[in-house]
């Protein structure tokens, strides 16, 4: 008797009721076909255009190599003096300069000078690239709600998609090396500067902007004379975040052949060298703290008149 309801159920919902317990997925054959089509299409694409894309990035590669060589081949004390000089010029703080000096001396003493210079060079280039690309995109986003509604989800994807996933097409296209590394780092690190440029410009005091318009400022004069200067504290926060995220990508980027502090870390993972990993990890942390403090102190110094009374 107890079997009746089950029987009834089966007759009512036809014979095959497996969709109740298992997800009714597409057949393996179809999925394979889709994958094969996409993969081969991309492969064809990369065969057809890989070379020209590589050529396109060639100047950047040359610059990267030149900059890295410059940092490594210049005697260490000149580089160190230049770095401390830059820090002082940007922050006017002797304490910070002293901290930077001590960190770099320690890094050099533990034999990580060359790797640190490599990392420094790629981070610098990635940051500059992110700023050059990110700020105009942020401005575009601030100017048009439509652009914002398109770009925001893209940024969400860029930030949440695991880095390894977008490394695959980049490596397929350009092989392993510096350029794919730079692209991966920039994709991962650029969203904050875009988001915060957009936010900063949108938050500019409406009346101040209105004043500029009322006195006959053109759109360009408004942008460079009012919007960007007033958004600068927020944009600087974005740049700061971008630098931090670029540094966080150093280890991942080393998987596709970017030399620097990431590679020893990678080596330590595979070989269980605890101390080597720790030292290089600490060097990355030191770089991060230096970048962070210097950029923040610089931003604060440059914006000191805008604190307090905001005319709002």
């Amino acid at each position: 008797m107890a079997r009746y309801p089950a029987l009834l159920f089966e007759t009512l919902f036809m014979i095959d009721s497996s969709w109740l317990t298992e997800f009714p997925d597409m057949s393996r054959r179809d999925l394979l076909a889709i994958r094969q089509t996409l993969d081969s299409a991309y492969r064809t694409f990369s065969r057809a255009y890989g070379q020209s894309i590589e050529d396109f990035f060639n100047p950047l590669l040359h610059f990267l190599i030149w900059f890295e060589d410059l940092l490594i081949q210049t005697p260490w004390w000149i580089v160190l003096a230049a770095i401390v000089g830059l820090v002082y010029a940007a922050t006017r703080s002797w304490r910070l300069c002293l901290g930077v000096l001590a960190s770099f001396l320690a890094i050099g003493y533990f034999g990580m000078w060359e790797d640190t210079m490599r990392t420094l060079s790629i981070i610098t280039v990635c940051t500059i690239l992110s700023i050059c690309i990110g700020i105009p995109i942020g401005i575009l986003m601030a100017g048009s709600d439509r652009a914002r509604s398109i770009i925001t989800p893209l940024l969400d994807i860029m930030q949440t998609m695991p880095a390894f996933v977008y490394l695959i097409p980049v490596v397929m296209l350009l092989g392993i090396g510096k350029i794919p590394g730079v692209i991966a780092v920039v994709i991962y690190a650029i969203p904050p500067v875009i988001r915060l440029t957009n936010l900063g410009i949108r938050l500019v005091n409406k009346e101040t902007l209105e004043a500029a318009t009322a006195y006959g400022a053109t759109a360009t004069q408004r942008l460079f004379g009012v919007q960007i200067p007033l958004a600068m504290p927020t944009i600087m926060a974005g740049i700061n975040q971008t630098i931090m995220m670029a540094l966080a990508m150093v280890v991942v980027a080393s998987m596709i052949g970017v030399k620097g502090l990431g590679q020893p870390v990678l080596k330590s993972i595979t070989n269980q060298y605890f101390t080597l990993g720790l030292l290089n990890g600490l060097a990355i942390v030191a770089l991060a703290i230096i970048f962070d403090r210097v950029s923040q102190t610089y931003a604060k110094r440059a914006q000191r008149h805008m604190e307090g009374n905001d005319n709002g």
Partner: peptide, 10 residues
């Protein structure tokens, strides 16, 4: 001339 002055803080 604006109510909240509309000056440029920078």
């Amino acid at each position: 001339v604006f109510q909240h002055f509309g000056l440029m803080p920078h």
